[in-house]
Simulated scan of single mutants.
Amino acid sequence: MAFAAYVFDAYGTLFDVHAAVRRHADAIGPEGQAFSEMWRAKQLEYSWIRTLMGAHKDFWVLTEQALDYTFQRFPSADPALKPALLDAYWHLDCYPEVPAVLKGLKAQGARIAILSNGTEAMLKSAVGKAGLDLVIDDIFSVEAVGAFKTAPAVYDMVTTRYRLYPKAVSFQSSNRWDIAGATKFGFRTVWINRANMPDEYPDLGPALILPSLESLQQHQEG
Rank of each mutant, 00 (worst) to 15 (best):
M1S: 10
F3G: 04
F3K: 05
A4D: 06
A4E: 12
A4M: 03
A5S: 09
Y6R: 04
Y6A: 09
F8W: 03
F8D: 02
Y11S: 10
G12D: 13
G12L: 12
T13S: 03
T13N: 12
T13L: 15
L14P: 00
F15G: 03
V17F: 15
V17H: 13
R23F: 09
H24E: 05
A27R: 14
G29A: 07
P30H: 07
E31P: 02
G32F: 06
A34K: 10
S36L: 08
M38L: 15
W39L: 00
W39E: 01
W39Q: 02
W39N: 00
K42E: 15
Y46G: 07
S47F: 00
T51L: 07
T51V: 13
L52A: 14
G54R: 12
A55I: 03
A55F: 07
K57G: 04
D58H: 15
D58F: 08
D58Q: 14
F59Y: 08
L62Q: 13
T63Q: 09
E64L: 06
E64I: 05
Q65N: 10
D68V: 06
Q72K: 08
D78T: 05
L81I: 04
P83A: 05
A84H: 12
L85M: 04
L85S: 03
L86Y: 11
L86I: 13
A88R: 00
W90T: 05
W90A: 07
D93G: 01
A100V: 06
K103V: 01
G104N: 09
L105V: 02
L105K: 00
A107E: 11
Q108L: 01
A110I: 11
A110M: 10
I112C: 10
A113Q: 00
L115S: 05
N117D: 05
T119E: 12
M122L: 13
M122K: 09
K124V: 02
S125C: 07
K129V: 11
A130D: 06
G131C: 08
D133G: 03
L134R: 14
L134A: 15
V135W: 12
I136P: 07
I139C: 09
F140P: 02
V142S: 01
V142F: 14
A144Y: 08
A144T: 12
V145D: 10
V145C: 13
V145Q: 12
V145N: 01
G146S: 06
K149M: 01
K149Q: 04
A153E: 14
Y155C: 00
D156C: 08
V158D: 04
V158A: 10
T160S: 13
L164A: 10
K167Y: 12
V169Y: 13
S170E: 08
F171T: 05
Q172V: 07
N175M: 12
R176S: 14
W177C: 01
G181T: 08
G181K: 11
A182W: 00
A182G: 15
A182Q: 08
T183N: 12
T183L: 02
G186N: 04
R188Y: 11
T189L: 01
N193C: 07
A195I: 06
E200Y: 07
P202S: 01
D203H: 14
D203I: 04
L204T: 10
A207V: 05
L208I: 04
L213H: 11
S215C: 03
L216C: 11
Q217K: 10
Q220V: 06
E221H: 15
G222C: 09
